Amino acid sequence: MNTAQFISKSSSNLVEKASFTWQTPSNIALVKYWGKSNPQIPKNASISFTLNNCHTITTIDFEKKEKTATVDFDLFFEGKQKDAFKPKIAEFFKRIQEYCPYIFEYKMTINSENSFPHSSGIASSASGLSAIAMCLMSLESELNTDLSEGEINKKASFLARLGSGSASRSVEGPLVVWGNHPEIDGSSDLYGVQFPYKVHSVFENYQDAILLVDKGEKQVSSTIGHNLMHNHPYAENRFTQANDNLSKISKILQNGDIKAFVNLVESEALTLHAMMLTSNPYFILMKPNTLEIINKIWEYREENNSNICFTLDAGANVHVLYPESEKKTVNNFIEKELAKYCQKNQYIYDSVGFGAKQI
């Protein structure tokens, strides 16, 4: 794998002070990845919808200083200093130091805020790490003015991946593939790429309502869950299945077979949780109300010949997916029938978005 392309070129440009703010989205995987090897290499390819309303806004203030052996940064989350988050960010900086050596020459003050609850199963690490990566690339583009927008996005995805695998899919949109796959032109284990084929109109402006079943911290982190795939009895079959499903969903997204989309996306969600149920140690991230919602969705779909479906990340919350043509009726169903299964009746209406934007 050619990682040398991402090593920052030396520059004579001197930027004494700079500040950059980026808004980067979360994403929801349709074909999941579960299991990886170092350094953050997925065991199978995945594809996700980029979201629009669920995002992180991050500002990094850079101030030039004498070069030191460690990265100097302060971290504030939603206005409060968050030392508890610093070890993960410090590890991220350690992983990217070869590619961004300039980080040793700046004092960084990082301010982040989410439009959704942290650790609520809406991939806050994806939006958070991709936001930091975009801020770093804004600085790098000041130091090296020859970088194109494509090169900036590619390296940002590459860097974000080293902090959180799914963050590689949060730089662009509306559909992003991460992981080398023979049927996806340009795909790579090192960074995410936009789905390269024309998507059927039924999947444009697709809706995603996130039902907040449990807004608390997960009892098992995704990192631990991924590691449990190393000795999982069904791991290899799962990796094969996921890559096969990516081939299938590529065709579905192009031909508009929404019934096949519903079946594949729900199967992927349940398979992800089946891997958790059958790992050792085993664990369950779904809650009773997760199952109540799933059954209500199935009943509604049957009774109304609807194309509503669900997917899940590694958590209890339910992502309700549906075409824009059903927005009014499905939103009414959510408000009248599903909201009561959410913690404090909370849910977020979202839709497919187009990636990071500087603000």
Rank of each mutant, 00 (worst) to 15 (best):
W178K: 09
N237W: 04
A242N: 11
V265H: 02
G128Y: 03
L136M: 07
I152Y: 03
E66L: 00
T58M: 06
K336Q: 14
K340V: 15
K65T: 11
I110D: 00
S351Y: 14
K198L: 13
N243L: 03
E266F: 06
F92T: 04
L139W: 04
R301M: 08
S120H: 01
K64I: 06
F283H: 05
L246R: 12
I184C: 06
E98D: 13
P25T: 10
N280M: 05
V330M: 09
F239M: 10
D83A: 10
A18I: 00
C309W: 04
T59Q: 12
E217D: 10
L270Y: 02
P42D: 03
Y349C: 13
P87Q: 04
G216K: 13
G353N: 03
S130H: 02
L228R: 13
N243R: 05
I348E: 06
I122L: 15
S37Y: 01
T50N: 05
E335Q: 15
G256K: 11
F49V: 12
L136N: 03
S19P: 00
P117Q: 08
W298E: 12
D72T: 03
H273V: 10
E324Y: 11
Q194M: 09
C100Y: 00
T240N: 06
Y282I: 01
K218M: 10
D257E: 09
L162H: 10
N144E: 10
V31D: 08
I293Q: 04
N114K: 07
S8G: 01
A4V: 11
I89S: 00
L338Y: 05
I122Y: 06
D313Y: 01
N27E: 07
L338V: 08
S124F: 03
Q207Y: 08
